[in-house]
Amino acid sequence: MEETLEFRLSGSGGQGLILAGVILAEAAIREGKNAVQAQSYGPEARGGASKAEVIISEGEIDYPKVVLPDVVLAMSQDAADKYAVRVKKGGLLIIDNTYVKNIPATSARVYALPISRLAREKVGKEMVANIVALGILAGLTGAVSRRTLEEAVLSRIPRGTESLNLKALELGFEMARTFTVKVPA
């Protein structure tokens, strides 16, 4: 198989994780790669467990579901409890410690960051925590470039929220810069 990166973005319904997954896949496609985004959610639109999966590959993606993710984002305690143990060895576990108080044992490298809190305090809206998380994720992994990610964000958000979302993305990249680790090839 060609080089493939698998992402699992997890949290609660309403945190915008499916949109984040769509934006990540969109950015990959803008870079000429293949991408698949799949989702699973409970029947309720808000509050239930929510999970978006993204696979990015240079080659053909047959099986559309994540098998063992390279990167897991967990934005709720439930999501952390469920998915922290299922990360590729040496992979990345990005935790929103605004909501995740107990980090489960994992073989992944853990990045615990106050994603929702800083979204609220520095951008002014917790709603954009998903975009902050995307910035962190791209900043840490280099999976997609900042420029294409910006384009992808702008193509998928409601009109009138551009500057808010770009500010959120900027914050994410800035938070990622405080960690200088790159995902292993």
């Binding site: 769509v22 896949a25 496609i29 790669k33 293949n34 991408a35 698949v36 985004q37 799949a38 989702q39 993606i61 559309p64």
Partner: peptide, 9 residues
């Protein structure tokens, strides 16, 4: 549901 809901290039 898989093909209906998945997004791909």
């Amino acid at each position: 549901e898989v093909i209906g809901h998945m997004r791909e290039r």
